[in-house]
Computed example of a mutant assay.
Amino acid sequence: MADFWSSEKIVAADGTVSVISAEDRPCTLLENVIAISTLFTWFGFVYVGPWLTLWVIITALLGSKAAITTLIITIGLSFVPPGNVWWTYRSLGLWDIWRKYFRVRLLTPPKDKFLKPDGHYLLAEFPHGVYPMGSWLGLPICGRPGTGIPKNLRGGIASVLFALPVIKHNYAWAGCMPAEYKRMLKHLREPKASLSVIPEGIKGIFLAQHPEREEVYLTRRKGFVKLAIQGGADIVPVYHLGQTQLLTFWGTEEISRKWRASVGLFWGAYGLPLPRKHQIITLVGPPIPVQQSDTPTQEQIDKLHTQFTAALRKLFDDNKHLLGPVWAKKQLIII
Score class of each variant (00 low, 15 high):
F266P: 03
R213M: 10
T306S: 12
T219A: 08
G204C: 11
V290T: 13
P273K: 07
D294S: 14
V225E: 02
S293C: 09
Y239C: 04
D294M: 08
T309N: 05
I202V: 13
R260W: 05
L272E: 03
K226R: 15
L265G: 00
I281V: 13
L241R: 09
V238D: 15
L265F: 13
H240S: 08
V197G: 05
Q298S: 05
I205E: 01
W267I: 05
W250A: 14
E215N: 09
V284H: 02
E253G: 11
A310N: 07
G232F: 09
D234V: 06
D302S: 09
G223L: 14
I202N: 05
R221M: 13
W259F: 11
P211S: 05
A311H: 05
A311R: 06
Q300A: 13
V263N: 06
I301A: 01
T306G: 07
Q243F: 04
L241F: 12
Q245R: 14
T309M: 10
T248C: 13
E200P: 04
R276V: 05
S256R: 13
T306A: 15
G271T: 11
P273I: 06
P199E: 06
P286G: 02
I281A: 03
L227Y: 00
I280S: 01
G204Y: 01
E214D: 11
K222E: 04
L207N: 12
A311M: 01
F224H: 07
E215I: 15
S256P: 14
E253R: 15
V236D: 09
I235F: 05
L246G: 09
I202P: 10
L246K: 06
L207H: 14
Y270H: 12
F308A: 02
E200Y: 07
I281E: 03
T248V: 08
F224Y: 08
A269V: 00
D294Y: 04
Q292F: 00
G285V: 04
K258T: 10
E212P: 00
I288P: 10
K226H: 06
Q245D: 15
L283P: 07
I280L: 03
G264P: 06
L274Q: 05
H210G: 04
L274D: 04
I255K: 12
F266D: 00
K303E: 13
D294Q: 11
T248L: 12
R260K: 09
I198F: 05
L247K: 11
I301L: 07
L283M: 10
T252V: 09
E299I: 03
K226M: 07
P287N: 07
K277S: 01
K258I: 00
Q243D: 15
L265K: 03
G223V: 08
G285S: 07
H305K: 02
I301K: 02
P286S: 15
H305M: 03
G285L: 02
L227N: 05
